[in-house]
């Protein structure tokens, strides 16, 4: 598996897009940190960008990589390598290379800014942690979708729809349901609703940490009320882990029975 991971990683590390992605974060973080006086505002803006952009890029990279490397995959399948190693290796290769772009792109400006001397280091670490989680989650979901769809266009379409649903439409439905059922106690429903969407969950997690959950309104307040700060953090991280592990298991399951 590690050999496959190595080659997938090198392959992507040479790709122009990895650098564009890295430079984008680098510039974004530099601008936000040095042209902004308030560190916590900078973190929130970064969060808003990360929470939408990381899933989108993870989805698109995951789908494109899968379809583009089909021939390579077939070549590997005839070699004495386990199927699970091939797909897991490729998955980790993409997820890690995207994560590195994110970590370095945002990490370098923060180090220059003097992060290690500031109290914001934990907020910042959490931001990166959720960013990495979202990368792993969405690459895994994208891989699952592409494994299930032989047709490139269909696979791409479903993957983008999935992103659109989780990033935009879900929130809309969530909000509508809160408005429609406002006469009922909705704490548990909204809590569940947040758990079921990794993007919402990440957002809540960071806002809880920043202690400005009132800004987000309902979900944040509910989370705080239910879990208190520590427990909420651990529960969220646990659910994010589930969000990563389940699609990965699905990849392994599907890869075992697929014909090439």
């Amino acid at each position: 598996m590690f050999k496959i991971l190595k080659y997938s990683f090198y392959d992507l590390a040479r790709s122009r897009w990895s650098y564009i992605y890295f430079l984008f974060y680098l510039i974004l973080a530099l601008v936000l940190l040095f042209l902004n006086n308030d560190l916590s505002k900078a973190v929130i803006t970064l969060m808003n960008v990360i929470i939408i952009l990381v899933p989108l890029i993870g989805t698109i990279f995951g789908v494109m990589y899968y379809y583009n490397s089909r021939e390579f995959t077939e070549l590997l399948l005839a070699q004495p390598i386990k199927r699970s190693s091939i797909f897991l290796g490729q998955y980790l290769g993409i997820a890690l290379s995207l994560s590195f772009s994110l970590l370095f792109g945002i990490g370098i400006p923060f180090v220059i800014y003097g992060l290690f001397n500031s109290g914001a280091i934990w907020d910042f670490s959490l931001l990166l942690l959720t960013g990495v989680f979202l990368t792993f989650i969405f690459v895994a979901i994208a891989f699952t979708i592409s494994l299930n769809n032989e047709n490139k266009i269909k696979g791409f379409g479903y993957a983008v729809l999935m992103w659109l649903f989780l990033a935009v439409i879900y929130d809309g439905i969530f909000l509508m349901s809160l408005v429609i059922f406002e006469d009922y106690p909705l704490d548990k429903l909204s809590l569940l609703g947040t758990m079921l969407n990794p993007i919402d969950l990440s957002r809540t997690l960071i806002l809880l940490k920043l202690d400005i959950s009132a800004l987000l309104g309902y979900t944040g307040a509910v989370f705080k009320q239910f879990f208190g700060r520590q427990l909420g953090l651990f529960t969220s991280i646990f659910v994010l882990c589930l969000w990563t592990v389940i699609p990965v298991l699905r990849i392994l399951y599907k890869a075992r029975s697929k014909d090439f």
């Binding site: 392959d11 040479r14 790709s15 583009n68 490397s69 089909r70 021939e71 390579f72 077939e74 070549l75 005839a78 070699q79 004495p80 390598i81 386990k82 199927r83």
Partner: peptide
Amino acid sequence: SSDYRKQIDYLPQIANFPSNL
């Protein structure tokens, strides 16, 4: 197991390789 494939050399019908390699 996948080990038996060590015994086989396979020439696929359509030679498609990763194009950027």
